[in-house]
Amino acid sequence: MPTIAHYHRPPDLDTVWGLLRDAEGSARLLAGGSDLVLRCPPEVDTLIDLSAAGLAGVSVRPDGSLAIGAMTTFSDLLVAAPVTDHLGGLLHDVLADFGSVLHRNQATVGGHVARARMSDLIPGLLAADAEVVVRTEDTSTRALADHLAAPPTTHVLTEVRLPVARGPAAGAFTRFSRSAFDHALLNVACVVHLDAGVVRTARVVVGETGVLGRRLRAAEAALTGRPLTEATIQAAAQAVVAELDPRQDALASADYRRHLAGVGTRRCLQRAAERLGEVA
């Protein structure tokens, strides 16, 4: 049992930030709870519960981008049509197989991103070029990729944003695991943006234990500037296999993971093509 001495449930974000800042490292933000119960660091003696701070919910911003409040649960996200429809259903692929209902009811988007461990959501968000809104002394918006690479030491992640796609775009996500409800051995998220029949930009992201989501630039290059044909897709899948250096552990060999990454890339791109109405 974590040795917690103080629990706060502040009514607004300003209070949250004030408490967090003043605790100087001895406080943790509490979102859904699940992760902190299991892994509360010993130096932590204060919990700041975000549930009353008004951070839940999904909205469409004036520029068409989507704002997902950090305290939005996975259950609520799964029924938020703007999110699940985004990029042809990329995040629906992620969310439909995400954990059990018990976990979805409890786990939050912000808590999940902040814990920064093996994730099915993060590759999806990275492929969608998601941004995060971060509260410190002031409020800033930055790319999720940058945030994960160098998170500010003390901060409140308040929102995840999905930018609106310009022109036709779609994505897909797939995961490979031992059983239905298990950590993925490996997962793949792809997004393609088309312009006049050719791929303008592409995102190919692979996640595995220890790697939250790695963009595979060679595969993205193999797609960019080309029509989304079967040959292009195969080339991208081969580029993934060539570029990826996955881990070996008790669950799977590196060889097998590399192979899966290729299969997953091909399948995601084929599904994205279908979603775009392109024949792949």
Partner: peptide, 20 residues
């Protein structure tokens, strides 16, 4: 599993304080 405000959750992964 219990239901917290009508949603089924695992009570072992919640702090008791969250039920306040």
């Amino acid at each position: 599993a219990v239901r917290l405000d009508g949603r089924a959750v695992t009570s072992c992964l919640l702090f008791a304080a969250q039920a306040d």
